[in-house]
Design a protein around this nucleic acid. Structure first.
Lengths: 222, 222
DNA sequence: GTCTATATACAGATAGAC
DNA sequence: GTCTATCTGTATATAGAC
């Protein structure tokens, strides 16, 4: 199943073939926004096309003129949100001392996951992944995989330069993010914690992981 | 909202008041089993009472004579499965060397999460937690909280005895499990990985975390 | 308690005028 | 493309006989 991402205006498309009037585009945007809000609030099944149409101030038939069916609408919306939300995790780990770089990336990781909207999106993707296999892959590659790859690449450089001892950088990266998360994420996903931990608490969490890792991966001989 | 757990026979209940004939109990068990299977396979919304009744070889009305509505049936089933599945994570960390004990608990943690049924249950609870707040709490306390508490208690002992340097045992425990999990869990939840990692790979993952932690929390002076 | 048969509601999706 | 009105299926839940 191909999930076309929602293209806000799609300037690359050949004019004349997919051209749409400005009124049509405005309605389409309204539908997309309403659908995103409602899907994230209520989940796939509880969301109804009726309500989406109502909140977008269009008729139900208009929704179906833009999207083939509920499935396709859902896929388009969630695909879009995955890319938007998760593309902002990458921190620059360029030339700073190791401790600083790790702290920065850990902090930013937590910040993005605690953004409003991230949690509902994650829940939604998890819930429907068995019935939308393509969606799980899109989310994973845009989010967890992308961020782990970036950190792994950084760690590999340090390993080659002899600064750290990280024979399996990808594994280390995944375990780093896992440790940063701890059970914070699961508490919020389950609704056990309604608020994200405050900034100073997050700082403490990240600092502890950075301490663990820098001790654990430092060259024994260095 | 109170979620009554499913009691297989409930021997503590005062006889005469909640007594049920053996035929009735058999049907109730059939309903519970069918409902558990179908909810875990299909999720809350896609599961229909019709199909549950069909698979349990009873009529739909019989389902409703045992459970007030779909909501209550769901809550009862999921509450039961949470307790059953998650109560088996606790490893004995008694008198073994630290490395061994941590390895054992990490290994068992992964094993339980990779059991068939664990993943669908987790997905189900996450998906419906916003609409079943009680369920999220039950799951958290039976699972993540319980296991983290146990490890934290163990770490605290070692800290007090001066073996390790773990000023915040609970935080350390959560980060330990987070690191063990890495992105294994998320890959399976999203369907990116269809099979659990093989035993030797899991062993390698756990070993790496144990190494990290034992280095990171060892007394600098010891 | 258990069944068959049914009430009731609302979902997704479409026909056809403009 | 957009609307109003409607088709059609199926879901939860219940009535009433046994």
């Amino acid at each position: 199943m191909a999930i076309p991402l929602v293209s806000p205006s799609d300037p690359a498309a050949p004019a004349g073939l997919t051209e749409r009037g400005p009124a049509s585009q405005a309605k389409r945007d309204a539908i997309v926004n309403a659908a995103a809000a409602i899907f994230l609030e209520q989940g796939y099944w509880a969301a109804s096309i009726d309500e989406i149409a109502r909140r977008a101030n269009v008729s139900k038939a208009t929704v179906y003129s833009h999207f083939d069916n509920k499935h396709a609408l859902f896929g388009a919306i969630v695909g879009q949100r995955c890319q938007r939300t998760l593309s902002s995790i990458l921190a620059d780990m360029s030339d700073r001392p190791v401790g600083e770089a790790l702290t920065a990336v850990g902090r930013q990781f937590l910040d993005v996951l605690m953004m409003p909207g991230s949690l509902p999106l994650y829940r939604l993707v998890l819930a429907e992944a068995p019935r939308f296999p393509e969606l799980g892959r899109i989310f994973y590659e845009a989010g967890p995989d992308r961020v782990a790859s970036a950190l792994a690449q950084y760690l590999e450089q340090l390993h080659k330069r002899g600064v750290l001892d990280v024979p399996d950088p990808r594994l280390a990266a995944e375990q780093f993010f896992g440790a940063v998360l701890g059970q914070i994420h699961v508490r919020m996903l389950l609704g056990v914690a309604s608020e994200p931990p405050p900034a100073d608490e997050r700082e403490r969490v990240v600092a502890n992981v950075v301490r663990l890792f820098t001790l654990g991966v430092s060259r024994r001989s260095a």
